[in-house]
Simulated assay, not measured.
Amino acid sequence: MAGQRLEAEWVRAWCEQADEALTELMRSFQERHGFPPGKNAVVLATEANHNATDALVELTPIPSDLTTMFWVIDEVSLPDVDSGYFIHSSSMVASHFREYGAVPIDGEEPALVFASDGGGHLFALAGSGQVWRSTTASWFDQFDLAAASLQELFEGLARRISSQRSSGQD
């Protein structure tokens, strides 16, 4: 996938597959865990999200894969997959950018934070298309390579959902 750009059709297909897998995973969640699941959802983008994405692009140059993702997805909330994964909305990314700026990553142009996990670690996308994860729950500490691309990150999320669904465990 290195060097290739994220395609909107691929993201749409991922959304459909993730939604189906989450629906199945949530059916037995309460029975297995003794408490109801949180709101696990893949929220598709609307015209308002497209406008927010356009505003983000005007605010700062963003990697093209992030623009593609935001054109399809508003946000992803997976509090019950592993320790939780959250793809932020473009308006939240813009708000965070205004407050914290881009994150510096050695050997990369500054990267834009677009997601987090349930432990507060941040995910940032660099212009190279690589995804980086903070080593701590901080905007200002080191970031390590998490995935070669946004597509690889989404494929990993799909595997986590499927693994959890098939094992019946968190």
Rank of each mutant, 00 (worst) to 15 (best):
A2T: 09
A2V: 09
G3R: 10
G3H: 08
Q4L: 15
R5Q: 14
R5E: 14
L6E: 09
A8T: 15
E9M: 14
E9H: 14
W10M: 12
E16I: 07
E16H: 10
D19S: 14
D19A: 11
A21H: 05
T23F: 03
T23Y: 10
T23V: 07
T23I: 04
E24Y: 10
E24R: 14
L25P: 11
L25S: 15
M26E: 12
M26H: 09
R27V: 14
F29S: 10
Q30I: 08
F35G: 00
P36G: 07
P37Y: 05
P37M: 07
G38H: 09
K39R: 09
K39E: 15
N40K: 11
A41R: 09
A41E: 15
V43Q: 02
V43D: 09
L44E: 07
L44T: 05
A45E: 06
E47R: 13
H50P: 00
H50A: 11
N51E: 13
T53P: 03
D54I: 01
D54W: 01
A55T: 03
A55G: 01
A55D: 02
E58C: 02
L59E: 14
T60Q: 10
P61Q: 11
P61G: 12
I62N: 05
P63R: 07
D65Q: 08
T68H: 00
F70Y: 15
F70N: 04
W71G: 11
W71V: 00
V72Y: 01
V72N: 02
I73K: 01
I73G: 05
I73Q: 08
S77N: 04
L78V: 08
P79L: 02
D80F: 02
D80I: 07
V81M: 04
D82R: 13
S83T: 11
S83A: 04
S83G: 05
Y85L: 14
F86D: 06
F86Q: 05
S89M: 08
S89A: 14
S89T: 13
S89V: 12
S91C: 10
S91V: 04
M92K: 10
M92Y: 03
M92C: 09
A94M: 01
S95T: 07
S95R: 12
H96C: 03
H96L: 14
H96P: 00
F97T: 12
R98V: 15
R98A: 09
Y100W: 11
Y100K: 05
G101Y: 03
G101C: 03
A102Y: 00
V103P: 08
V103L: 10
P104I: 04
